[in-house]
Design a protein around this nucleic acid. Structure first.
Lengths: 253, 253
DNA sequence: ATAATAGTGTCTGTTAGACACTATGCT
DNA sequence: AGCATAGTGTCTAACAGACACTATTAT
């Protein structure tokens, strides 16, 4: 190991990239923005940007999240406010060749948000949209005929895949699925989140018994709603129990 | 969002820090090295170093692991060779104040190794040792009397705590605990790994039934050993099943 | 013999999964 | 009425946890 010499470190650029997931129309969707410059001009990419000189990594991710979506990163300690979103660090990507212009290390973050009206397409950001992750990440890679290449720039397909996998596994044993729901939601709405994220169909009755039988997981608000049709359903908010034990079992695929 | 201008990015130093864990004498231990320079001169720290200009993050972590321990990072695809260790990315730490000299972003990695003879104390590295994580991370923080401060430099106590928590939770649902074992091991040895990592006592009979009843988890080598005393025990090696479903349940603490 | 560990068998309480059935709204 | 969704009850197979018991070595 060479002696520690702060004056001779190789310089890196450090960025944050965001995997922002939501559930729209029964599908897991990710926020993507169209690139206006080379490389990958015109291609879709994950939102992100440089970390500022005196900014923590999480603060940079929260700032980008506000700039791109208007969402506030939700402090886990604070009670649920209007448009708060779950934000956590995902992983760091630093292949020397991942950006052709220079050495960039990107600290990817994962954000989970309830269904939003529409991405902020205007302003200085390029056009943005919610895209089903199924369209961005075709199963088993891409056909070798070159017709459908990965639509995402840089290594963002890998980052997105890692983020989706993190979300899929984390809702098994935590109350994180409620981050996809509005502040008050029904058991059926929460079940449809699981179904969309996992791509499965769950038994409504067993699901109901499981989530309502876990102490501290769901707290009834007292209200009801018929926004899903059918019999009025109780409204709940996320409880204090942040870990789900025993976990929700993901059915075999 | 400012326009993308590669020529004006703030410069960062990027390092890798290693949380190297092993099980020694029924205790979960971490590798620490004594710092020879300021800041934190004389204090213990996690091993680590700068990422080189054309080096991937995982490669830098593997290089540091070899330099500090002689362990080879185990490619998950390759069959188990002599002294391979599990290596995975843990998390990235980039608080602007975490290093008083300059802006350093550290990509921490987690390595799990079988019990080794001794750390390589000689060479250009400072003195190194295996320390029980219990000594490095006293429960519930440190007494406010200032007598026992965190013995680790920088934010390494936080990094170590995150690594230990990752290891503790990951052995629940994966075959990762075998990374703490030699290539061939007994069921009892594997159980003692769980007991050391979790700090609990497990029922030997239920544990045996659980791990031998999970298809693909353990593969008998045919040999036996009496190195633990008592009746000769079958030797196993890690099987192809990398995920444990249903998971091993960590008893309440 | 005694002690140590390895390994198998049995019982019980809990739970996941399957599914019948009732409740309550809307069109 | 018919249909949608909400919510409860029941049955069964699987499994975790507790623990009795046997097997095989070393001292």
């Amino acid at each position: 190991m060479p002696p520690y010499d702060p004056s001779t470190f190789p310089p890196f650029a450090v960025t944050v990239d965001l995997v922002v997931l939501t559930v729209r129309r029964h599908a897991l969707c990710a926020l993507v923005v169209r690139r206006g410059e080379t490389p990958f001009q015109g291609r879709w990419a994950l939102p992100g940007g440089f970390v500022r000189a005196d900014e923590d990594l999480g603060a940079a991710a929260a700032r980008e999240l506000v700039e791109e979506t208007g969402l506030c990163a939700q402090d886990p300690a604070a009670p649920a406010v209007g448009n708060g979103a779950h934000l956590e660090q995902l992983a760091t990507y630093g292949d020397p060749a991942r950006d052709p212009r220079m050495r960039v290390v990107s600290v990817a973050h994962l954000a989970l948000a309830p269904d939003l009206p529409a991405p902020r397409a205007g302003g200085d950001a390029n056009s943005a949209r919610w895209a089903p992750v199924e369209d961005l990440l075709p199963e088993g890679g891409y056909a070798p005929d070159g017709e459908h290449r990965a639509p995402l720039a840089f290594d963002h397909a890998k980052i997105l895949a890692d983020g989706v996998e993190r979300a899929r596994s984390k809702i098994e044993y935590s109350s994180l699925a409620t981050a996809f729901c509005p502040p008050a939601f029904t058991v059926g709405e929460l079940r449809r989140v699981y179904e969309a994220v996992w791509g499965v169909v769950l038994d409504p009755r067993n699901f109901h018994r499981k989530v309502t039988g876990t102490p501290g997981f769901l707290v009834p608000t007292g209200g009801t709603t018929t926004r899903q049709g059918g019999r009025p359903a109780q409204l709940f908010r996320s409880g204090t129990a942040t870990v789900l034990n025993p976990p929700m079992l993901r059915p075999e695929v």
